[in-house]
Design a protein around this nucleic acid. Structure first.
Lengths: 346, 346
DNA sequence: GTGAGATCTGCAACCGGTTTCACAAGACTG
DNA sequence: CAGTCTTGTGAAACCGGTTGCAGATCTCAC
């Protein structure tokens, strides 16, 4: 005699499957294989049987068990998405894009945050593998290439930012340098010569490239580089606040600030505000990323826009292609400068 | 003769499991059950065998297949988390809290966005079920009670905001009304009498409760309610901008604005700015939620704080308890008013 | 009427773990 | 030294889907 299925709360963790494919098969008077075929539409089944099976499915609101299907099929229809912090407005935009695209394809996303440190990133990646994701999207992580390559052996990976020539891996570059020069040319075109730069972390590739763009634009305009106008931030408001305060208190003369990203610019705003300086009357400010909130800052911020949301969508597109065994054919979204009210002609 | 395992890109979607538990067993000269027991520590196994099995595991970097384990165990160690939008700074904070707590417990989170509409929410919930999540966290959804109850039959649910008396369901109320009265009392205490309110959507329970708090505080102070001072927003910057502009252009006299949330307040800021009004000199503004960015708005925003991150952590705590068959013992985080520079005495 | 071909369906073997149960060996008791 | 109790291990049966293969039925042509 078969013992009854374990009930909910007691010991059995889940009530297992309430109703299984074989239950449906029995009820409809067919075999399990037929039910499976009808659900997946893999082979033509007579209308008669289809109808009776569908009736049984509807009656019990049957949904095939994900784990069982995953086991049989060898895929879980889940993609791991690694960002640095889910509550960073920058990454959030990207995740949004990823989510949309994946959902449309019937995939779900497992989001995890690397917190800007290697150990956490590694842990996340490991967890992705353990959860059996079909693919991984990495938003410009700090994991070294060898490690990524290693994970790449277990499942396809799409990276934004970095380029990595590994099989079953795809890279979606971010046009950091170009974006930075756009911002700088804008300021220079308005007559600014003393332009400060609030940088990101010293190791992050995106940060380095943006700095490179800053330098390139200066050189292009034959403006001598003054290292005292470059201060390190931390990608966040706080860093921008501290760095700008530092510049101001050190008495550095500057008429404009280019910030490595919008959050930094918001911090800079506050520092300027506290020192009684007005944007753009006293100092012009340009950001990078064009966060949604930036069009609501006071004054609305001029910023470099490379839609992170679109980047996310494309990354999702690419990872789906990899999973399906196709070669992805997607490009990074275009970069442009969005001019608002935080910059003015000298 | 056994045919070789399918290779990566070609036909088989995934390379299946590179190395299985039975492979390890064979290599270590033991049975599969022993390996399983060693991995999970369910039963004591002799040190000798343990050592040789662990060696084999390490050698091949073996990781048990999630789908297979999920099938056998009846759980997937995955929790579905429904918010309205992953890129909303409000929800992002909550998701962050959820993520932390779940990760610590070895669970992963499947995040999905309901986009403030019932159809999407329902679709998300269905997807959660299809993916076999062990539990669900809903951040104040708009799904009706009956539907939630229905999903509750399939897996445990924790809701924030709403209260729902259903088995295997737990609610974590948000102290909307109390928070709103705190904000209002602050303004009234500063001498304001003409206080506008920018509301949220008309149906959302949180929005209604905050409105109720607004009314309650007015009544408490014996200030007559002027319906023309209440305008509907949409929880976002844009709604705040439009609503405030409307108030200003209709020539309504007011000395303070209480906004249903911080994003709305940021929109209000911009509207006031565009009309040449200064905060707090001309108009005082109070928000709700105390988003991280609010301490960087100009001027820094006075706001009601009920840590959404902590709320997320507690929700995660609760859902883990439910999954384990325990009764959750968690409470909503406290509410307090954070006074910054956007309000002044009349 | 029979054979070839096409179409539909069921059996049974898988996917890769976990767990019940039985059994063997060692530890204790009397 | 027989008998009971513990303890460690393996064989085999699950979990709930998918799918290769073979057999059944039906069509059509000669």
């Amino acid at each position: 005699m078969k013992n009854p299925r374990p009930q909910h709360g007691k010991r059995g963790p889940r009530p297992r499957q309430l109703v299984t494919l074989r239950d449906i098969a029995r009820e409809a008077g067919v075999s399990a294989s037929t039910v499976s075929r009808i659900i997946n539409g893999t082979v033509k089944v007579s209308d008669e049987l289809t109808a009776s099976v569908e009736a049984a499915i509807a009656k019990h609101d049957f949904r095939p068990d994900a784990a069982a299907r995953g086991l049989a099929l060898g895929r879980t229809f889940t993609i791991g998405v690694l960002s640095q912090a889910i509550d960073s407005p920058f990454y959030a935009e990207g995740l949004r894009g990823v989510e949309r695209r994946l959902l449309a394809a019937g995939y779900a996303a497992l989001f995890m945050s690397g917190n800007w440190n290697v150990a956490d990133e590694e842990r996340c990646m490991r967890k992705f593998i353990d959860h059996g994701v079909d693919g991984i999207i990495m938003f410009s992580g700090c994991l070294d290439n060898a490690a990524v390559k290693d994970f790449g052996k277990r499942c396809p990976i799409v990276m934004t930012g970095r380029h990595l020539p590994v099989a079953h891996t795809y890279s979606l570059p971010i046009k950091d340098r170009l974006g930075a020069t756009l911002a700088m040319r804008h300021l220079i075109g308005l007559g600014h010569r003393r332009i400060a730069f609030i940088a990101g972390s010293e190791t992050h590739p995106d940060a380095l490239e943006r700095l490179a763009g800053y330098l390139e634009a200066l050189q292009e305009a034959r403006i001598p580089f003054d290292p005292r106008l470059v201060v390190r931030g931390d990608w966040r408001e706080e860093g921008g606040l501290i760095a700008t305060t530092q510049l101001l208190e050190a008495g550095r003369a500057f008429t404009a600030v280019f910030c490595v990203n919008d959050q930094t610019a918001h911090g800079a705003y506050l520092a300027l505000f506290r020192h009684g300086l007005k944007v753009p009357d006293d100092v012009s400010v340009v950001g990078f990323d064009d966060l949604p909130s930036s069009s609501y800052s006071l004054p609305p911020l001029t910023s470099v826009r490379q839609s992170v949301r679109v980047l996310g969508e494309r990354a999702a597109e690419a990872v789906l292609a990899l999973v399906a065994g196709r070669r992805p054919k997607v490009e990074s979204p275009p970069v442009e400068l969005v001019v608002r009210d935080s910059t003015r002609r000298l």
